[in-house]
Write a protein that binds this DNA or RNA. Structure first.
Lengths: 279, 279
DNA sequence: TGAATAGTGTCTTTAAGACAGTATGAG
DNA sequence: CTCATACTGTCTTAAAGACACTATTCA
């Protein structure tokens, strides 16, 4: 990377560092924004905040905020912002899967200045209703179905224009971030056991199947899914117990499972259809 | 994201924006750094520059530089930096695959100030030897084998400590960026046709196999690989022609292929072994 | 001619999917 | 009792891998 003023005296690096002025560059701000997904009543929801201040005052936006310079790395900033804008305490946060999604840095994506946003993706079990943070008029879990284009989840990859706009427009380019997050989430379910991150510590195979069905947006074959999940080493491990009662519409009491120790699924649980390669 | 001073007059957004001072925040700088990979004489090489100025003066580092505030998005910045630090003209750049890898933002990764680096991954066909850019004493394609830990490519994922350090230490945290890039490259070969990005426009199946073997670090079965590549729809398309001569050690003249129009491989070309799930 | 390579055929094993069948428990 | 559900069994098909074989070209 270029230095502020190249070709300094090579022996006097410390003096050079002392004289370095961090304000000399045209500033680019760095934020983290979090796409936190959860399932409530079998429906996929995303955590949104209503902006209390300009720009986009009153609009819904992803929770996030500026990285504290010199104080935290990006993962820490994302965890901090997620905790600040939700009623999530540190204990509950440990149950949340948080991973970096990608960075977005179009010069005009924020009208104030050039802001690079490092987007994070979070998978959470059903969490309490959030309270509004310091800069939000409100914070809520919003059904993704009220934001996604009618096209539905199968159609189109990241480049498909039909999936790049949301129905209820979010602030900034947060609609694009959400689209990217959903794409990533759908494909993460294929080759990782992260579907379990949406569930309580103990769950049934049907619970797990419901996660896949909701996020992929299609029904799966119960019998084949059941066998497949149990055949992948390390995906789930049995507890030896069952639920106290059968389902609301009858049936035997399903067995309870915990997440196994696999971090990747082998073989993967590939999505059906996808009519051959997406070109 | 939080605003500079929340709870402004909601009706006067434009005035608020005019009064906005981009220098008010503790500054975080944003750079792009590029892990450009190519094959030279069947060996994987990475583009490195030797730093002409502090910090890390004299060390090898990934090419990169500061994002020009307000002037370019991240992809453009990466393409610009790659072009600046190589002898690559715009025409050749179109043959290079460039994708975002991820962002790195530990507060102390740069001694000057808090710098968030957006890392990019580039796959290039054999390009000319680069010239040194403005801030580099030298620029060169360096064999990845001289930087990677002895462990070899199979062992360990991103979290394995044996792969997180490089033998020849790079400046900043660029060793970690390289490790992440190699992981990404290895897995991208599985489910995308990007191996072709390392080859000329026309290539043989053996050329393609050599890409996989070098990047995955293991020999593949020639017959099965051949059939597999031809069976994946849209991976390659025949030209109807063959090379002018057979191999240096004999054999029939292999047929020539071009890249097909698939953007994902279905079914994927999974890496062998990987002894079940990586836990 | 000998050796290495391109390309194809075939067999085995594994996995995915379609479908059927049995047992369980709620209403 | 009825019906949805939890699971299991079985068959078909697709794909991966092991292996063998032929044809072609360079040395």
């Amino acid at each position: 990377m270029p230095s502020q003023s190249p070709r300094q005296d090579p022996l006097d690096e410390q003096a050079w560092l002392d004289a370095y002025d961090p304000h000399a560059f045209a500033p680019v701000a760095v934020t983290v924004d979090i796409v936190a997904l959860t399932l409530r009543q079998q429906q996929l929801h995303v955590l949104l905040v209503q902006r209390a201040a300009p720009p986009f005052q009153g609009s819904w936006a992803l929770p996030g905020g500026f990285v504290r310079a010199g104080q935290e790395d990006l993962d820490q900033a994302a965890a901090r912002e997620l905790a600040e804008e939700t009623a999530v305490d540190t204990a509950a946060l440990r149950r949340v899967h948080l991973e970096q999604l990608g960075s977005f840095g179009a010069p005009a994506r924020d009208p104030r200045m050039h802001v690079v946003s490092v987007a994070y993706l979070a998978f959470a079990p059903d969490l309490p209703t959030p309270r509004a943070g310091t800069d939000a008029a409100a914070a809520a879990w919003i059904p993704v179905s009220s934001l996604e284009p009618v096209a539905g989840p199968h159609r189109g990859g990241p480049g498909d224009p039909s999936t790049t706009r949301t129905r209820v427009d979010l602030a900034f380019d947060h609609g694009a971030l959400l689209t990217a997050a959903l794409d990533r989430a759908r494909s993460k379910l294929e080759y990782t056991p992260l579907a379990t991150a949406f569930l309580d510590r103990e769950f049934t195979i049907s619970d797990l199947r419901a996660v896949y069905e909701e996020i992929w947006g299609e029904k799966l074959h119960p019998g084949n899914f059941h066998r497949k999940v149990l055949s992948v080493p390390g995906f789930v491990e049995g507890t030896g117990r069952t639920t106290a009662h059968g389902g609301s519409r009858g049936g035997p009491r399903p067995r309870l499972y915990r997440r196994g120790d696999a971090r990747l699924l082998h073989p993967a649980l590939l999505r059906p259809d996808r009519e051959e390669a997406i070109r």
